[in-house]
Design a protein around this nucleic acid. Sequence first.
DNA 1: AATTACAGAGAACAGTTGTTAACTGCATGG
DNA 2: CCATGCAGTTAACAACTGTTCTCTGTAATT
Lengths: 208, 208
Amino acid sequence: MSHTFGIRQAQKQKTRQALLDAALALLEEQSLSSLGLREVTRAVGVAPTAFYRHFRSTADLGVALVEEALGSLHPMIRTTVTASDNSEERITRAVELIARHVNAYPAHVRFIARERHGGVQPVREAIRAQLVRFAEEVKAELAKDPESEGWSDDDLLMLAHLYVDQMLITASLFLEALEAPEDERERATQVATRQMRLITIGRHHWLD
Amino acid sequence: MSHTFGIRQAQKQKTRQALLDAALALLEEQSLSSLGLREVTRAVGVAPTAFYRHFRSTADLGVALVEEALGSLHPMIRTTVTASDNSEERITRAVELIARHVNAYPAHVRFIARERHGGVQPVREAIRAQLVRFAEEVKAELAKDPESEGWSDDDLLMLAHLYVDQMLITASLFLEALEAPEDERERATQVATRQMRLITIGRHHWLD
DNA sequence: AATTACAGAGAACAGTTGTTAACTGCATGG
DNA sequence: CCATGCAGTTAACAACTGTTCTCTGTAATT
């Protein structure tokens, strides 16, 4: 589908992306449920009616933003949990990776954190579905680890969700400290690392 | 201040509360940043301009809602962490307490979860400040526990924040399952309990 | 070369919004 | 008992919203 890219299709996708970018920028200071269609088109510089050529409504645009934002988050989560010899090293690497991602895509992270419990139901559901997929991937990755021997499927999924939620909390923590002085960001890193470590310790002794 | 309650003051507080209640109800299907002043007054049945007698803006009303919502959450959190002999029993009691609170004040819980990362800065900050206070209380309660011997202040606070965040996650999980069939709510309880248990295990072995 | 498809523009609509001003009625304090 | 304070009303404003319909230019198809 859509393998043939004429000038036409290219231009359409270009303004579509411009609408998504403008919306994401506007959403730094408000929620999706208050984002106006005209507001977005005005920021892009196109007529309000052009919006309908790409999205049914701002809620529809929001769902598209979920795909974009969590699409970019996808590789991060997988790498985070990938097994390595030293588990302490894995933790610090994971936290650093999250910090790096927040620095690279702050608007995406903010959008997900904000709209996960936001006022637009289709968007909430889209985020929830993606997070469930993430948790399943994390579970599969955890299952490979020899440390997961004797774990039930339910417990693995429970731990996976705990990790996913903890990642979001950490990302949101870094986001709040984005423009803060260096020492506060360092403090955030320390807290996140220790929380992750405590969870990992709990994982080690789960089967006692 | 305001110990003398004439008929006048009583009526004022009555409509003020009516505005808060109406706003909270309207916020079940949208975010605060899209809540209109007229929308609220219409729901209460007063003139739009009456709004200004109580709040400067809807953001101001939001801050007031934070106090109300987290005021009712306050006793819950304290009881949750209160020490008891059996730590397993403490966990199930805590989870049950959260479930009970969500059932009793679903709108409050939804509001906090939604606006914690929402689009209105003063409200975000108010929630953050309250959660910091909660974490400090939890830390103080944890410090009393003989199990906290040898823990640094930083680590106690780190654990306290982990507990507070986990409570919010659990509350939000119960909220999503509020009108779901019984078996899904039971599953939510199981997941929440086991996550809490894993954290507690990590806490037990922290000083190894 | 002629025809079609379609992204985007333009204008107009009914309805909504926040905010200001001047008012009314009544509980309160002197 | 009278004067003041103030919660709530009424009316009006300019600005904004989402949506519909009609139109235009041009890339794609035949």
